[in-house]
Design a protein around this nucleic acid. Structure first.
Length: 188
DNA sequence: AAACGGATTGGCT
DNA sequence: GCCAATCCGTTTC
């Protein structure tokens, strides 16, 4: 079942990032439908989060989308090369988002292999935020689109994930931000 | 106006 | 393990 807007409007973005573990991220681009189980996420929590592009209340054309009401995509280019996909959550004008850091491929593996230009191997195929976007065909032009629409959405496949199976770690790639926030890693 | 660094990855040593 | 790739926002001249 497809997650509805109310799910994305939850105000506790850390809790939301945990709930997203085990959900299924789907992209339909043209004729290709690809999906994967979300296995790693990272929460970006409002203007007080030093790691967030919206830290201190910054608003630019790029980050403006983070201030939207929950349920849209925030996609930006990192290091000039990699697209990174975030789920915008919470209320309007409160910049919260969850970065999808890793997925376990489910459907459309042949298409994802083509996009990634490598063969599917369990180890390193889609275990990074840039790789996730590459595999699913997500680009910056998708920033701002609805996550309850026809190109990108998230489904609940009732995959059981216990709290004790979720590992909480320090921020990844943003050591300067301190350890207030976290990224849960699912065990699959 | 120009330089610098970042929520990363893949290829080469 | 190190380094290049190379866009966007911030800092500095």
């Amino acid at each position: 079942m497809k997650l509805k807007k109310a799910f994305f409007m939850q105000e506790d973005v850390v809790s939301l990032s945990q709930q997203l573990i085990g959900k299924v991220l789907v992209s339909r681009m043209g004729n290709s439908c690809c999906s994967g189980i979300i296995s790693e996420t990272e929460a970006y929590n409002g203007i007080g989060d030093k790691a967030s592009h919206a830290y201190g209340g910054r608003r630019t054309r790029r980050t403006e989308i983070m201030y939207s009401e929950g349920g849209v995509a925030y996609v930006f280019l990192c290091y000039g090369i990699h697209n990174l996909f975030n789920v915008v959550s919470g209320r309007k004008d409160i910049p919260q988002a969850v970065l999808i850091r890793s997925i376990i491929p489910l459907e459309g593996i042949a298409v994802m292999e083509e996009r990634r230009n490598i063969k599917y191997n369990r180890a390193g195929f889609s275990n990074g935020p840039g790789k996730v976007c590459s595999a699913l065909g997500i680009q910056t032009r998708h920033s701002g689109i609805s996550l309850t629409g026809k190109e990108i959405w998230i489904e609940d496949h009732q995959i059981p994930v216990k709290d004790e199976d979720i590992i909480v770690t320090e921020r990844i790639g943003v050591a300067y931000a301190g350890e207030d926030f976290f990224s849960p890693i699912g065990l699959f």
